[in-house]
Design a protein around this nucleic acid. Structure first.
Lengths: 204, 204
DNA sequence: TAAAAATACTCCATAGGTATTTTAT
DNA sequence: ATAAAATACCTATGGAGTATTTTTA
């Protein structure tokens, strides 16, 4: 069975064209390297090297295989990096809810900051009432939402990010002492903390 | 160090979403599979699966990594297949020499047959005298050539592929008893034998 | 004849197996 | 209660090391 080890060893020999030096570079002895290359050639079904006991050079097939191997390792690195980014929430999609009144206050600034900070996360925005947002969060249709307190729900994280003086422009729709905007997200959504703390520092 | 084994095992679990069944499919026991997946996650630096003791599902990072892994395996297969084809002389470039008189006789038929048989070999044609062809072969500038006997050279393979009656159209340029065309190649050129036997069967 | 790859063997790290425990449904 | 993953421990395959031989430039 071909393993990445075989390919790593092959690349080293292909670059050095010398089993001794390649082995040194790989921090192994020369005989096991010869063995592994042999094994690889057997598995592949074709010769990678023309070798006399004095000189080593790539066969034509070996040359093309070397090029492909290089691509392969690049792709592997890319795959790992991509996975890491996704795991850190740096790429992907974010579904955001907002009540209409935040659209001209906090939202634009936050979105701009977010798009700059993590440009590979695409944002999907939905204008929803506070109640609708709580519903969507429950159903996992939404990741985070911008709404107006009060919120009587213990399955979500709520953070106040904006506060207005009593008697301000939104007084009619909001209960006394609960003016302002809130940010909600369900427990366990990874990027939430970083994002909110980062952004609220600028907004509040 | 990540090995293809890890990725193969990961793909199996990602498809089955069940360590037991995946292990069965891989012809190993379940505990070593769990170990290897663990090891992979450690190496990668992110979780691939959400697992309770009862249910397994991919994380978002795991999903994207699975897609990339699939691509990786496809590419590996492709690399191997490509190498095999090159080793069999089914892809690459072939430099061909020919004396002008073969251009309207044997050459067109042979080239047509060749292009049909191995379409991924590009052909480079050079009109050269018999002596020039022997020179080019020596210098490795050419792979095979179509010329007119006699050839006093033992480092090449010569095969008669066309014979004309004495007194034919080419009498002036050829010695008596050595009429016709020949195909030459240096010893050790892989595809030569298959090709000539194949083609001469139709031409002669 | 000297440099370098192959061969012959030995050893040990670790992949894989078996038995058991834990836990979520 | 039970299915399924994790844990603990053991076994043995094969990857890697050392010593030596072979070869060709």
């Amino acid at each position: 069975m071909i393993e990445l080890r075989h390919l790593r060893y092959f690349m080293a020999v292909a670059e050095e064209l010398h089993f001794g030096r390649a082995a040194e570079r790989l921090h192994i002895a020369q005989p096991p390297l010869s063995q592994q290359i042999r094994q690889l050639e057997t598995e592949l079904g074709f010769q990678l090297f023309f070798r006399t006991k004095r000189r080593v050079r790539l066969t034509e097939a070996g040359q093309t295989f070397a090029v492909e191997c290089q691509r392969l390792f690049r792709q592997l690195d890319q795959a790992i990096e991509m996975g890491r980014q996704v795991s850190r929430g740096e790429v992907g999609q974010l579904v955001i809810g907002f009540v209409s009144s935040t659209a001209y206050n906090v939202l634009p600034k936050i979105l701009r900051a977010f798009r700059t900070g993590v440009p590979d996360v695409s944002l999907e925005l939905h204008e929803l009432t506070t109640d609708q947002q709580l519903q969507w969060l429950q159903e996992n249709r939404m990741d985070i939402g911008f709404l107006r307190p009060p919120v009587e729900e213990d399955a979500v994280i709520l953070k106040t990010i904006f506060r207005e003086p009593v008697g301000g422009g939104f007084a009619r729709n909001s209960c006394p002492g609960q003016r302002g905007a809130g940010l909600v997200a369900k427990f366990g959504w990874g990027i939430f903390c970083d994002f909110s703390s980062d952004v609220s520092a600028r907004i509040v």
